[in-house]
Amino acid sequence: MTENILEVRDLVKHYPVTRGIVFKKTIGHVKAVDGVSFGLRQGETLGVVGESGCGKSTLARVLMNLEKPTAGSVLYKGQDIARLKGGELRRLRRQIQLVMQDPYTSLNPRMTVGDLIGEPFDIHPEVAPKASRRGKVQELLELVGLNPEHINRYPHQFSGGQRQRIGIARALALRPEIIVCDEPVSALDVSIQAQVMNLLEQLQGEFGLSYVFIAHDLSVVRHLSERVAVMYLGKIAEIGTEDEIYERPTHPYTQALLSAVPVPDPKVREQKAIIRLTGDVPSPVDPPSGCRFRTRCWKAQDVCATEPPVLEIRPGSDHPSACHFAEKREIVVTHEA
């Protein structure tokens, strides 16, 4: 087992909720991420799935050092990224890059593709001397499957899928070790999604990248990830290898989530039993006591309201799950393709 290139320990990110304009008073906290720990190994893809509001995008922001954690730490090769300053911080930023969801708003419409992809070189001039930059940008364009002659075009001249490729090229410019992908394919059409997913896989093989792949689409995450973390209301409900999560899920939330994913095969529809969750995700300002999933869980007992379940391996299962009554249940009938 290779060691972790990125290590997240008890990460907490709370946002204050305030009232009043002049005399601001904090009346509560949005507990966006509330105690998350995991490791990312060299060259692997860790998928993070969850519904909207579960804190997966906040997690991305903290991993990118765009937000300081309220508590806990993110260690890159043993260094706490929140403590870095100046030159050290700048060197770290080269190693962790981000691909964003919306290819329409994440590219500055007034900059040409060449400027967009070349901008990282302005900030980190040591990577590429000025004279070689144009060539580097064209190389990157070719790498992500775009025409290098389009270097002087503007983002609006490209389609959604092509723009996402520009975003990927920009993330690759500094040859990072880690790329955090925050819903990179969810804004794309079906036929384009597959192209971008294949590109991400190919680049990973070529450069030995490690991905944190954040998405709400469980099929996409399964396809790309070696390990998967399922998040619910700021906490990890279950974490394990792709097989463990998809074939032997033990947390009721994972089971419900998996059962709700539509399978593109009408033959499956009669065989499938959807676990129906009632109600909506509770507010992260005031999450339920004990287990956060208990308000929607069919297994909930008294203990669930008082004692928050620890994310640990319980008897009868092979991977950590944060449920007092973790139990294997087959939801998705997998076949090898």
């Binding site: 389609s159 597959a194 192209q195 099929s219 996409v220 399964r222 396809h223 499956v268 076949h335 090898e336």
Partner: peptide, 24 residues
Amino acid sequence: LGLLNSIPRIDEKGQQLRTIKGLP
């Protein structure tokens, strides 16, 4: 056919995504 071949399925493992080349 191309669409069906290009979507990842939750019930398949080690699936090869065959893409439709080009753009609409």
